[in-house]
Nucleic acid binder design. Sequence first.
DNA 1: ACGATGACGGAGT
DNA 2: AACTCCGCCATCG
Length: 107
Amino acid sequence: MQEFTKQAIEIMKSIPQGKVMSYGQVARLAGSPKGARQVVRILHSMSEKEGIPWHRIVNVKGEIAMQDHEGRYTQRTLLEEEGLAVEPGGKVSLERYQHFPEYQSKR
DNA sequence: ACGATGACGGAGT
DNA sequence: AACTCCGCCATCG
């Protein structure tokens, strides 16, 4: 497994409940600015087994990225259970919920 | 080992 | 502002 992958997993597992991060953001922090798709692949293959809170990952617009299948509904439900307001289109407010690990030290 | 894949992102139309 | 096009790069078959 590549360093990037380990980093990405750590970062995603560090997202607090009720917060979200975008694929690209995770990729950047993991050391690969253009690696958003690798994040997708990580979630695709090992989200469950690694215990990654996959539902807290949304695209850069704050929308649920999953295609319109059961997973999408599941993600929406999980987010709402964590207290997020999910709009009808399956979108949340990044203004309110995006998690910024790089600012955490400053706070 | 090589080519296809993918829950993306951002530049261009 | 919405939509399409294409680059990206770790994994998987």
